Computed example of a mutant assay.
Amino acid sequence: MDSVTKDEKEETQASATMSKKQLRRQQRQEKWLSIKADVRAKEKQRKKRKRREALERGDVMAPTRKKLRTNTMAKSSCKTSVVIDCSLDSYMGEKDITKLVKQIQFCYSSNRRAQNPMQFHVTGVHGQTKARLESIGDYQNWDVNFTSKDYHEVFEKENIVYLSSESENTLQELDPNKAYIIGGLVDHNHHKGLCHSLAIEKGVGHARLPISEFLDMKTRKVLTINHVFDILLKYTEMKNWSQAFCSVIPQRKGAHVKQDVESSSQTDKQESETSSQTDKQESETSSQTDILLQESETRSKSGTQEYETSPQTGTQDCESSSQTGTQECEFSSQTDIQECESSSQTGTQEYETSS
Rank of each mutant, 00 (worst) to 15 (best):
K6S: 14
D7K: 14
K9S: 12
Q13R: 15
A14R: 15
S15G: 13
A16E: 10
K21A: 14
Q22T: 10
R28E: 11
R28P: 00
K31V: 06
S34T: 05
V39R: 14
K42Y: 08
K50W: 05
R51P: 01
E53S: 05
E56V: 10
E56Y: 04
R57V: 00
R57M: 11
G58Y: 08
M61C: 04
R65W: 04
M73E: 05
M73P: 05
D85W: 04
Y91N: 05
I97P: 00
Q103C: 07
Y108S: 01
A114R: 02
Q115N: 09
H121Y: 15
V122P: 02
L133I: 01
G137N: 07
Y139M: 05
Q140V: 10
N141V: 12
N141H: 02
F155A: 00
I160Q: 01
V161W: 06
Y162A: 15
L163C: 04
E166K: 15
E168L: 07
N169Q: 07
L174Q: 09
N177M: 14
A179D: 01
I182Q: 06
V186M: 10
H188P: 05
H191Q: 03
L194M: 14
E213S: 14
R220Q: 15
L223C: 02
T224R: 15
T224P: 00
I225D: 03
I225W: 00
H227Q: 15
V228G: 07
L233A: 09
V248P: 09
A255C: 13
Q259K: 10
Q259F: 00
D260I: 03
D260Q: 14
S263G: 03
S265L: 12
Q270I: 10
E271D: 13
E273W: 04
T274Y: 07
Q281H: 08
T285A: 13
L292D: 10
K301V: 08
T304C: 11
T304E: 11
Q312F: 10
S320D: 11
S320Q: 11
T326W: 11
Q338M: 04
C340Q: 06
C340A: 11
S342H: 09
S342W: 06
S344D: 00
T348F: 03
